[in-house]
């Protein structure tokens, strides 16, 4: 009895300590970022391109690639998730895809970058925005697939039956009723996937690389905020490193706000 109480106290102490240490590091990072970011940021960086010491083209490029990735990744991910939960009859195949998706979720993003490099960069001998977008869309897929899959599993079967019982075809009921019931959860998954890729660097280093100019030509090297930060931070001059800090600050604000929106949606759903 005495012993067990003691062990309890020790474990409580250890886990509290671990949590405090974790939070301290997180706060340290955030604080540094805010101090350095705010002290170096200047409005002009939002209106100038990298070539003139700004990040306008980088922001636009990052969003263009994330947008193209979403155009590919969201429909494919949604359809795969719907297939797994609503149509898959062959349980072996379904479970294989589920496992594959789980493995992809934990695959290091650099591996995905190298894979797309071999597929879409090496053959044409040029970094290009399409490759970057595809790499990002591959990163989105497992997140969207698994949230869609599990959100659909929360929709009670009675609702599907009720839909069919008033004369709906299977695909209509899935689109109009089942997906609608799971809408908030699925949207959250999509947002989280987007937040994940908007801040990714590794899949882009070997695919889109970076460009100092504003361009919309995805066949060419493409501007990327994250790759730019990675490069700038390695430059010896003060100006580049300062720009890296302010760019990091902007990126963090963007990722945080997308994540918070996702969180807000989920808690809002729970209240309803």
């Amino acid at each position: 009895m005495q012993n067990r109480l003691k062990i309890n106290k020790i474990i409580l102490f250890l886990s509290t300590a671990a949590a405090v240490i974790g939070i301290l590091f997180l706060l340290w990072i955030l604080l540094t970022l805010i101090v350095k970011g705010v002290s170096t940021i200047h409005w002009s960086i939002l209106t100038e391109d990298l070539i003139n010491g700004g990040i306008r083209n980088l922001l636009i490029g990052q969003f263009v690639m994330a947008g193209v990735a979403s155009v590919i990744g969201i429909p494919v991910g949604l359809m795969a998730g719907v297939y797994l939960r609503e149509y898959g009859r062959n349980m072996k195949l379904v479970n294989f895809i589920r496992n594959l998706s789980d493995v992809m979720m934990s695959a290091p993003s650099i591996v995905i970058g190298v894979f797309v490099f071999a597929l879409m960069v090496a053959p044409v001998n040029s970094f290009n925005g399409w490759a970057g977008s595809v790499a990002l869309s591959i990163m989105m897929l497992p997140i969207i697939i698994s949230t869609t899959d599990s959100m659909l599993s929360l929709v009670p079967n009675e609702l599907r039956e009720a839909g069919m019982a008033i004369g709906g075809s299977k695909h209509r009921i899935i689109l109009d009723i089942v997906m609608k019931s799971a809408k908030v959860g699925i949207t959250t998954g999509v947002l989280l996937a987007f937040a994940r890729i908007i801040g990714e660097t590794a899949p882009l280093i070997f695919t889109s690389a970076n460009s100092a100019f504003l361009t919309f030509n995805l066949n060419d090297q493409f501007p990327s905020l994250t790759v730019a930060i990675y490069n700038l931070a390695n430059y010896p001059d003060e100006a580049s490193r300062n720009l890296a800090w302010s760019a990091s600050f902007v990126l963090t604000v963007i990722v945080l706000s997308i994540n918070l929106t996702g969180r807000f949606l989920t808690t809002h759903k729970k209240r309803n």
């Binding site: 009675e158 009720a162 839909g163 019982a165 008033i166 004369g167 709906g168 109009d176 609608k180 019931s181």
Partner: peptide
């Protein structure tokens, strides 16, 4: 199923307005 309707043990309203709940089957038909 349009000729032979079914009511379940647990009420199963669709996630839509009261009007659309009734109109949905009509639109399908």
């Amino acid at each position: 199923r349009q000729k032979v309707g079914m009511i379940f043990q647990k009420p199963t309203p669709f996630p839509m307005s009261i009007f659309d709940n009734v109109a949905y089957g009509l639109r399908l038909s």
